[in-house]
Design a protein around this nucleic acid. Sequence first.
DNA 1: CCTGTGCTTTAACTTATGTTAACTTTGGGG
DNA 2: CCCCAAAGTTAACATAAGTTAAAGCACAGG
Lengths: 246, 246
Amino acid sequence: MLTPLIRKLARAVELTPADIKALSVLGANPRRCAAGHSLIEAGRRMSAAVLVHAGWAFRHRTLSDGRRQVMDFVLPGDICEPTVFVTPRAGFSVQALTELSYSLIRPEDVLELVTRSPRIGVALWWVEAHEEAITRAHLVAVGRLTAYERVAYLLWELWTRLTLVGEAEGDGFAMPASQELIADAAGLSYVHVSRTLRRLEREGIIRRSKRLWHIVDAGRIQQAAQLMDGLHLATPLSRKIQQRLK
Amino acid sequence: MLTPLIRKLARAVELTPADIKALSVLGANPRRCAAGHSLIEAGRRMSAAVLVHAGWAFRHRTLSDGRRQVMDFVLPGDICEPTVFVTPRAGFSVQALTELSYSLIRPEDVLELVTRSPRIGVALWWVEAHEEAITRAHLVAVGRLTAYERVAYLLWELWTRLTLVGEAEGDGFAMPASQELIADAAGLSYVHVSRTLRRLEREGIIRRSKRLWHIVDAGRIQQAAQLMDGLHLATPLSRKIQQRLK
DNA sequence: CCTGTGCTTTAACTTATGTTAACTTTGGGG
DNA sequence: CCCCAAAGTTAACATAAGTTAAAGCACAGG
């Protein structure tokens, strides 16, 4: 029963079989949501967080004149808006990109899990830290990278995250997002995203066949994305903290 | 003893006098740091978070070719990198902008505080949620607003945050950041920031005398910043959750 | 009170990216 | 299997913002 969430947590923290069993409670009562539907709407009150099991969603904010910024993609294993528990109103909207399978997470469940195992508490906290790192890296990309670098960065980020939760197939992954959505994530126009993707393809860095995209040259995409080092996404827990949890 | 942090927390959660007294432990052993020094360096291990009492810092990432993105400003009352407790390596650097007074926060202290009062636990969590909201709003600004809108947004954000911790003087606040730093926060060139600030001044929206800047027309700066509603920064805790904490 | 160094401003010019619009491809429903 | 709507591509042209450079300020240190 390696759900995407458990796969991700296990990569950061050494979980016991009992922990893994306990965590499966978060998959209870799965619901479905059609592509295009809003899961969370900016300004609305919420009382539960959302754990996505399958499918993609995206967190975004749309201005009154239609300009839209996609803040990040919500992939299988991601938890949306754990801040629900302390701030009643969502600041941003989350919309399903594909059909979605998800569960609502109520504060009680989290409390129960965390009380039972400190490893789970740390692991869930780690997830939040990881998300924060993703958002900040995204901000750097949008603020200071060229269009070419930004698109390379985005593809690398998605591929890396999908690999982490076991949703990539080697160098390939299913890409449900339209170029317009990619543009809104990268802070570019869709025309320019198209130009840039073709260039990455022409240069032999990526390959696309239908909705299956491939990172042909992982080294060069990292270089293009200005990822000079391994700093960009959160690192696993240190041995020292791991020891303390035992 | 209304420290900036306590002021901010009290605005979100109803703290008892005992809570406030307990929180003052976070101000113990204040240290100083000269302007320009790095408090936290990307990729380095850390073992404590940083609570800033006085002065400004900024969180940033600098690429190998010198391009720099400022992710956010760290103002009095802000806690830097509470994620230390779960991810050993900082993903980004934090540098002092002015001379700084700060305290290191060790995990033990936080644990102790939170155990003592659930209100403090929720309040500290709220701070994190608030920071996340700031970063996301910043991302929207950098990704989708024009230069004029972005600079307006940034000034509004700083003024609002300073007001929240009692560091603004009515419509005015001390601005220690150079235009180059503002440019790196807004994802613009410093020349264009200069042009834009002059325009905001010419239009009677802001006024600057030396390092004291004023928001002359709060309504128009909000309009310029595309803040259509009150969604942008986190809202205080709901009555319902407040009740539960008693 | 001078002086130099680092900010800020302004102007002239360049460029990356946006816009518009036409054409092509893709894929789902009848 | 065909058709239509939606997504992607390409080209020509427009523009917001970047770059370079030079001049004006402002304040810290002598």
